[in-house]
C-alpha cells in the first residue's frame, strides 16, 4: 500500500499586508532616508516636526511642508540613569523635547550624554544619523550635545 500524499503548504505567521504611511508621515519618513528632517506648518503658522496630518485645533489638513535643520535646542529633558531593555541606549541617556532650528514645536528623541550634569535645558544638540537610514524615526540614532563650539 502506497503512502498517501500529504498536502503541504508553507505558512508564515505575520501580517499579510503592508501599510502606507500616507502623504504626511510618509513624506517625513522618506526624508529621514535622505538624512533630511521635514516638518509642516500648522494653521497658526507654527512649524511642527515631525509633521502632523491635521491641525489639532482647527482640524485643517496640513500640507505646507518645511525643511528644518538637524540641529536644535533642548526644551525639557529626563535623565534615564537605568535604561530599560527596550530603550534605544544601553548607557544612561536623556529623553528630550528638542526644538529644531526652523521649527516651533519640539520633538521627542533621545540625547546621548556622558552624565546627567552635561545636559541642560537650552543646550544645543545635533542629530547623529545611523549608517544606513531606512525611513524610520530611529534613523536618527540619537542627538548629541554640540558643546560650546558653534
Amino acid at each position: 500500500m502506497s503512502q498517501p500524499d500529504l498536502l503541504k503548504q508553507p505558512f508564515e505567521l505575520g501580517f499579510t499586508y503592508t501599510r502606507s504611511t500616507g502623504p504626511v508621515v510618509g513624506r517625513f519618513l522618506t526624508g529621514l532616508r535622505n538624512r533630511e528632517i521635514i516638518g509642516n506648518r500648522a494653521s497658526d503658522g507654527r512649524v511642527i516636526v515631525p509633521p502632523m496630518e491635521y491641525d489639532p485645533v482647527t482640524a485643517d489638513a496640513l500640507d505646507e511642508f518645511v525643511p528644518v535643520s538637524d540641529e536644535g535646542v533642548i526644551v525639557s529633558w529626563a535623565w534615564v540613569s537605568e535604561p530599560r531593555e527596550a530603550h534605544p541606549m544601553e548607557k544612561p541617556f536623556a529623553w528630550a523635547m528638542i526644538r529644531l532650528k526652523g521649527a516651533d514645536v519640539p520633538m521627542i528623541h533621545c540625547v546621548a550624554a556622558p552624565e546627567e550634569s552635561a545636559v541642560s535645558t537650552g543646550a544645543r544638540v545635533k542629530a547623529r544619523w545611523v549608517d544606513e537610514p531606512r525611513g524610520y524615526i530611529t534613523d536618527i540614532a540619537c542627538f548629541e550635545l554640540m558643546g560650546d563650539a558653534s
Binding site: P88, W95, I108
Partner: peptide, 12 residues
Amino acid sequence: TQWVDTISLAAM
C-alpha cells in the same frame, strides 16, 4: 517606535 516610557514623559 522609540519606546519612550511614560515615566520619562512625566519627568519632562
